[in-house]
Write a protein that binds this DNA or RNA. Sequence first.
DNA 1: TATGCTACCTAACAAACGTTAGGTAGCCAA
DNA 2: TTGGCTACCTAACGTTTGTTAGGTAGCATA
Lengths: 192, 192
Amino acid sequence: MVEPTSRRDILLQEAAHLFREKGYPGANLRELARRAGIQGGSIYHHFASKQEILFQLMDQTMSDMIERLTQRLSGAQTPLEKLRITVHFHIEYHVTGPDQTYITDEELRNLEPDNYLRVVAKRDRYQKIIEEILSAGKAEEGWLLDEPKLYTRALIKMCAGVSTWFKSGGALNVAQIAEAYANLFCNGLLPR
Amino acid sequence: MVEPTSRRDILLQEAAHLFREKGYPGANLRELARRAGIQGGSIYHHFASKQEILFQLMDQTMSDMIERLTQRLSGAQTPLEKLRITVHFHIEYHVTGPDQTYITDEELRNLEPDNYLRVVAKRDRYQKIIEEILSAGKAEEGWLLDEPKLYTRALIKMCAGVSTWFKSGGALNVAQIAEAYANLFCNGLLPR
DNA sequence: TATGCTACCTAACAAACGTTAGGTAGCCAA
DNA sequence: TTGGCTACCTAACGTTTGTTAGGTAGCATA
């Protein structure tokens, strides 16, 4: 969905935007169609239902996140390297494609049971990647953590949250924010 | 809203629950009325509109948060004490009243302009309290932070996130999670 | 006994919604 | 030249929605 050429991709992109603005139940398909340059009924040539649009959006986004994070991590050696890469990636991805990621984080409750299970499974795979980095840090380098899952969630929420307030052109750019958060996560606030 | 006696309070409490389940646009007033034990139209004896229910909910919650945090902080002396109290409070409040706080965090976009401004003003007051603790820690104790606002947001997102996955009866109770997060925020993961 | 207020009820309105049926223009292959 | 496919269009459907109008039962006050 980097360069939306097909109408289907345009629809997905506009849907992400609209769902974020109004929420899934608040968004309406005639408005979506208008933004994509077609008539309301024509959406059903590309998707079976409103629900399918939401599902495709979330499913694609989760797959993309897993794939990219895995790739970014492939060169790294130590748990510390991997942790820093993950913090950077998670923040950058959420800030770069804020609509898709926001929806993936917030609209789970609006997925029908089957779709819910499929998306949650991918989300868990993503979390597992991070969890294993933290576990490795604990085992190999004595990181101070008992339940890796606890810290995985802290990291995810903290980093994902950046996209809710970040505006480019502010005092800090994305890389600087990511660096600050990575340091916070590694060293805390208190001086050593 | 601790012990809902009046029908109005029951409505607010059920609305919080319903809005969290379905989102504000997805929730419908007949269902809300049913849960509160009255008929659809009777809601309008207590509130002028659906929007007013959302606003009252968010506005009351924000006021309550500010008041309680201020009170909890009143006995504390050092920035470090205050920081730990804040982490504990924010997590506990979000876990204890998860519906209200979830809505306050997520439904801002559904407030009409006037209501939006009023709630955001209170949210900013709350953030300011935390920001000033971090600034004091920097000034008085040399905490490693440049932009207090950056870390305020990290803290808020990290702690608020707990309510999205916490289930009582799990491996850790709320106080233990709060303690772990406070330590993470102060000292980071790496051993000293 | 009359008045008025509170806290509801019933029934309906108008608008908006997701979805569907049926049609059409353009293109490509046979 | 025909047939079929893709990508749309228009118009309508049935339902659900927030909201309102008008009525009523119970209670307190005068």
